[in-house]
Design a protein around this nucleic acid. Structure first.
Lengths: 404, 404
DNA sequence: AGTAATTAGTTCGGGTATTATTCAAATGAT
DNA sequence: ATCATTTGAATAATACCCGAACTAATTACT
């Protein structure tokens, strides 16, 4: 597991503890941090001094405790100097998000792009341009970007940072990390590539930092369906990063062939196309791929709100089919929370209640109940997760922020 | 995550590293251990001295390196002083295994017992007697038992060490740990209760320590079917220990009611009763519960070997039904290895090939292939896992062996 | 207003674990 | 026999944490 521990490592671990302790909760005094972490007051002071030196933490205004005694100086995470960049490569857009150390989004950009008709090299050029914008922004604020986390809808090789296979992108063996590093030059931050559903799970997990949730399941869905799993507070990747490939579970329509080669895949029931087909006729505007997806979903949502029987029936069917697959995942994974992402949150009002009821009906023990919610992160979910992933490195080893 | 690190914790971590390093591979000299761990020679020597003092490690004979230079003194894990005890509570037997620090079984016992007709208090008495035997054995060898890991087929509350619900035992809210502690008195080792499938996974994982397998799925089956999941080298428990409750996945016979209240549960297809019903008529000896299960399985195995069409057909059906569920688990978890436990290993020759073929046929990428094997641990699987679980604590913090 | 009580944060000595270096011991090669 | 090589112990230097003492800032009490 863990390696050799010397004084430097000890220091690093305690800096990490201090920074993570500071992340959860309000700014507070050194004295309070000392008792919280169990470190002595002296150590706490020198750790804070080091973290201030790294630009990760700063003194806030005085702490108004209201109690007796000398008031302390509140210490807060400094959001202005260190940034994580997250990106998402998807079928019809590229997204970028810059998140500061406090978890706040300081910049985001979306570039519409029809990936099918764009050469890979050009996509990479455009990604590089987005990153360069972010780098300029960081420079202007006299801050630094500690890393770039990129999500792609497909199979990713973590080591090499390449997309092995992304059917919806039409990509096969694209060395994203290497290509981008070449374009960005030596000043480019380290690049991490990951499956988009896994990044979505990371994003949802980090948003719920203070809710004491260590086991979370994130379900993303547009055309394809995938899951990201956080187990025991850690992203679960499986042997080779294939965990959560739930779109093709054999719990869909019996016998129906799926483009993947199997039959009866779940996403034939709960994927975007299945839902749209149920909810509207072929000529309907919601099928028009030249209209942005969000707009089409808004339209359907509007019809549901006004009582359109067809859409309501589609939602009811969708809820039932989702329930089947989710109950499988609940039995296997026992998550504390299930977050529905992708196109589902647009219909939370119609999906959450029936699915929750279905899961409850199957529940054998109180311990296997899960909290079902819709994602509130929207499109930025995977990009945000990418940024959180690289920021996590700073919390794990604050000294990496030293390179100026 | 991790807490404060001081000098004592630093020492503990390095002792742990040293001991774990020693576990994998042959006995070797201090100098070699120093280069392997990255610690200095001086530190290595003092760490070894401490570990010798704790009775965890001893000097072996001289190391014959064959190379030039002064030969070193090989250091080996001392198997004679520290033991872990594992137990299993099952429907018709109690099992106990004593495992030494080197992972070798030094003692085991099985007590036949019809749990249905035995009062809980008496079962606990008998468990306590088995443990007392093991404690005597440890005392006779001038060693100590660092803990007792107990597996039960059901829902377990880890904190309190109690069985919340074990349908096959007919148990409801039995405070196993507390009751046993009361019977064993103050000299009793700490007791850990865990679900038996999870312990099986731990056992299989520890047996494959040197095979570089970090993601493993263990499937246990007698009447009930359950899974234990090791992900990233760690036992996955889920929010409340319910992970791996796969027996009641809705991928079994459509519409057939299960005692659990659901319909179409997987174990109605792949559980022991389903298989026996397929393989032999009602009056057949294999259905006679007064005959030990192993004997009945041997009989069936014999029939299969001699070409009994009924049994072969049953095995073929079983393989097909297992394939469906396993493919679900592979998609969700992406294990490197799947170990079949329970009654399956008796029929490995007939099950492994067709299931492997079925999984391969569904595979989308090389990265999602899993190695399928039958368990070789037999009945002792869960008990062995329990022992490994408590021994793991010693590897994590060698100082706990200090209490004499 | 003045003193006591309380809490914050710094300073410093002590303890401990690590590393690097030095040195004696044991062996193979020349 | 002598030298090179490797092991393992001994020693000095360094880094970090802890605890106690101390200064600082504020409230509570008389």
């Amino acid at each position: 597991m863990s390696g050799r521990v010397d004084q430097a490592e000890m220091r690093r671990a305690n800096m990490s503890l201090m920074l993570r302790s500071l992340r959860s909760g309000d700014p507070r005094s050194r004295a309070r941090l000392a008792t919280e972490t169990g470190l002595s007051k002296g150590t706490t002071s020198t750790l804070i001094a080091d973290l201030v030196g790294l630009g990760l933490v700063r003194e806030d205004e005085r702490e108004r405790t209201g109690a007796v005694g000398r008031p302390g100086t509140a210490i807060a995470i400094d959001g202005g100097r260190v940034f994580g960049v997250g990106m998402e490569i998807n079928v019809d857009y590229l997204a970028l998000t810059v998140v500061d150390l406090r978890g706040r989004t300081v910049h985001s950009a979306v570039a519409a792009l029809d990936i099918a008709s764009t050469p890979v090299a050009e996509v990479l050029d455009q990604l590089a341009r987005l990153i360069e914008d972010a780098m300029r922004l960081a420079r202007a604020r006299d801050g630094q970007i500690v890393g770039i986390g990129i999500g792609a809808p497909g199979i990713v090789d973590l080591e090499s940072g390449s997309v092995r296979f992304a059917p919806n992108l039409g990509w096969h063996g694209v060395a994203v990390a290497r290509e981008l590093a070449a374009r960005l030059g030596p000043a480019g931050p380290p690049i991490r590539l990951e499956n988009d559903s896994k990044l979505g799970a990371v994003a949802e997990f980090s948003v719920r930092e203070n809710q004491d949730i260590e086991d979370l399941l994130y379900l993303s869905a547009d055309v394809g369906v995938g899951a990201g799993i956080v187990a025991g507070g850690r992203l679960m990747r499986g042997w080779s990063g294939f965990s959560g490939e739930v779109g093709h579970l054999p719990i869909g329509p019996q016998g129906v062939a799926c483009p993947c080669g199997r039959t009866g895949c779940w996403e034939l029931n709960v994927g975007l196309n299945a839902f749209l087909a149920l909810a509207a006729d072929q000529g309907d505007v919601v099928h028009d791929r030249s209209v942005p997806l969000e707009e089409r979903l808004r339209a359907l949502r509007g019809r549901a709100d006004s009582g359109d029987g067809r859409v309501l029936a589609a939602l009811s069917t969708l809820a039932a089919n989702l329930s089947i697959g989710l109950s499988v995942l609940v039995d296997v994974l026992n998550p504390r929370m299930i977050v529905l992402g992708g196109y589902f949150p647009s219909f939370s009002d119609f999906l959450l209640a029936p699915i929750t009821a279905a899961l409850e009906a199957r529940r054998m023990d109180l311990g296997s109940s899960a909290i079902l919610v819709g994602s509130k992160l929207g499109l930025t979910s995977a990009a945000r997760g990418g940024a959180q992933l690289v920021l996590e490195d700073v919390f794990e080893d604050p000294t990496i922020a030293a390179s100026k």
